[in-house]
Write a protein that binds this DNA or RNA. Structure first.
Lengths: 336, 336
DNA sequence: CGCCTCCACTTAATCGTTTAAGTATATTAG
DNA sequence: CTAATATACTTAAACGATTAAGTGGAGGCG
């Protein structure tokens, strides 16, 4: 409503002067500047983001690509905390965020087109099918991109240490005496690859043999599929003493299947999650899990992306590893 | 990158013609139009949202105000599903969403200023302190506004029927034989008022007397505070047979406190949640709760808001009530 | 005194789009 | 055959900001 023009009029100067005064340019006299600032404040002036973006090609908007292939989108605690930390870090730097999707209304568009349409200054890819050509297109564009839990060449990547996390969990349950361990993992993504590697390496180093039938593919965040696999594992007379789930949420689904089978956790069988969402501490027993620093994941991705946006020549496009820590919940029991 | 100008050049027409062709204006010849459309497609043209918004004062962007006073923001399943449905309904209509906050970078701003800065076409207020003067300012502005679970005069409001939900829950547990019912409610908001009213009315109609000490104020989505209150309720020798929690999430925290006290749910004490988030079906026992139609809440708010944005003269600014349904979980047992 | 520099501003162009108003050509009416 | 009308365009201004280039005057220097 109130524009530079209004302020210029009231101050008896040109709009250029007002713009420069407001932006802290050096070639403005001291009393002129303070008068302009005062009037701007009085009138409740607020810049027009569209006009500014049009002229400067900087929208102070960052895109967030967040595709949960199975479910609604941001409905899970892990994602929503990551998202929230992206949001608040962006806000701290004066950026807003825009969800990137395909298709504006009827029109079908690619993710990249959506980004161009809104003129986002960069994109955080927080969860997506990284083999999707549209995602590849985005990553190969000239837009600054930061990915979470996936590495692309010459791009910022923020990763949680899946290998180490899984390693720590295996050692934890092994120390509790478990040797018959089953692993339900998620879809084959780089996250899954890291975790599987960590799992197998730790088992090997500890001299634990895991039969193939105990390595099963489930679905991330899908208690249904994980419950079904759990049931199968339990039906086998030679059953594991401990089951690893793809994540805490599906672990809770697994607990349910275990209870339905008339067994108790951890007395009859132990369970291990992954993520360390708040919920994992609220349920009973508290889950043994690897607590990812979801806040750091989002915050770092946003911070590094903004760094690249604002200092394109000097920003280092490498990977950052975020540490996690073991949550020793009661869902794993000591066996002799 | 590719602008109207480029298309105009390639087609040998003016930018005005291209604009009109692309926007389906009637005064463009058939072959000209199809040629323009073809070239635009070939060049991968995508409009520039900033330029368009600058000229038309329509950003195709809707603001979402989402302030969770206690926690990070969108970290809870109830909120995140509402948000996700707002997002996807907006997307269906060609709108993007922007989170509204105070303060862009260092600069302190009001919610309304943020809205003006981004030029949002309207705002969904999904969760906020409705007594906050900044929220009031927003609601009293000329921006289209839709609120969720709160009513303002002459504004679109989408509400879940808290009174009926609570009524149904009370009748459900009463039918199971419970008469000693405790209620932990959330902060005093209009949601809480509705639920309390429903609770007291149902109790009165059923002839159930509830002592004051069993009506306690907790905090929404805060398992900690609810656990503490639960402990207090359990310590009293004259303890309730059933506890109502402000929501499913805090109910799960309450279950934990109950277990810690050496009691089982539902054998020793029954528990009731509210919301019906997916999690409530995953835990064991499944929670008895009122399943709110969170999808409808968000979808309707977005749809009605967009209706008002696009047809300001004919849109009806009233309240919509969203139905929910009883989820008869195993967390309430039949007592004699 | 004449020239240069510096300061504090203004002018004017520009970003990409939309749209009211204008224009040239073809068509129809009288 | 002229005049009115319709069609299919073009012209040009505008949205609100930014910014390179220009300007006028004060002050400094030799």
């Amino acid at each position: 409503m109130v524009s530079l023009k209004d302020i210029a009029q009231r101050c008896g100067v040109s709009t250029a002067t007002v713009s420069k005064a407001l932006n802290g340019q050096p070639d403005i006299g001291e009393e002129t500047r303070s008068r302009i600032l005062r009037i701007a404040d009085e009138l409740g002036y607020m810049a027009n983001a569209s006009a500014r973006a049009l002229k400067t090609k900087r929208s102070y908007n960052i895109g967030v690509l967040f595709v949960d292939p199975m479910h609604g989108g941001l409905a899970h605690e892990f994602f929503s905390t990551v998202l929230d930390s992206i949001r608040s870090e962006a806000e701290r730097h004066g950026y807003d965020i825009t969800f990137i999707n395909r298709g504006l209304g009827q029109r079908e568009t690619s993710y990249l087109q959506h980004c161009r349409y809104r003129g986002v200054d960069g994109v955080v890819i927080a969860s997506a099918d990284f083999t999707d050509p549209m995602v590849t297109e985005l990553v190969q564009s000239d837009l600054p991109v930061a990915t979470i839990d996936h590495v692309f060449n010459d791009r910022i990547a923020v990763l949680s240490d899946n290998l180490r996390g899984m390693d720590a969990l295996v050692r934890f349950v092994a120390a509790k005496g478990h040797r018959k361990i089953a692993l339900i993992h998620g879809e084959p993504t780089s996250v899954t690859v890291g975790r599987l590697t960590g799992f197998h390496r730790a088992c090997e180093e500890l001299g634990i043999q895991i039969p193939d039938k105990w390595i099963r593919q489930g679905v991330f965040h899908d208690p249904k599929s994980c419950s079904a696999i759990t049931r199968e594992l339990l039906e086998d007379p030679d059953r594991p003493t401990c089951i690893f789930f793809p994540d805490d949420y599906s672990c809770i689904g697994g607990l349910n299947a275990i209870h339905d089978a008339g067994l108790r956790v951890p007395e009859d069988i132990s369970a291990v999650g992954y993520d360390g969402i708040p919920l994992s501490r609220i349920v009973s027993p508290v889950l043994a899990t690897w607590r990812q620093d979801t806040g750091a994941l989002g915050t770092l991705a946003a911070a590094r992306l903004i760094e690249q946006i604002e200092h394109p020549r000097t920003a280092i496009l490498d990977r950052v590893i975020v540490e996690g820590r073991l949550q020793e919940g009661g869902s794993v029991r000591q066996i002799c």
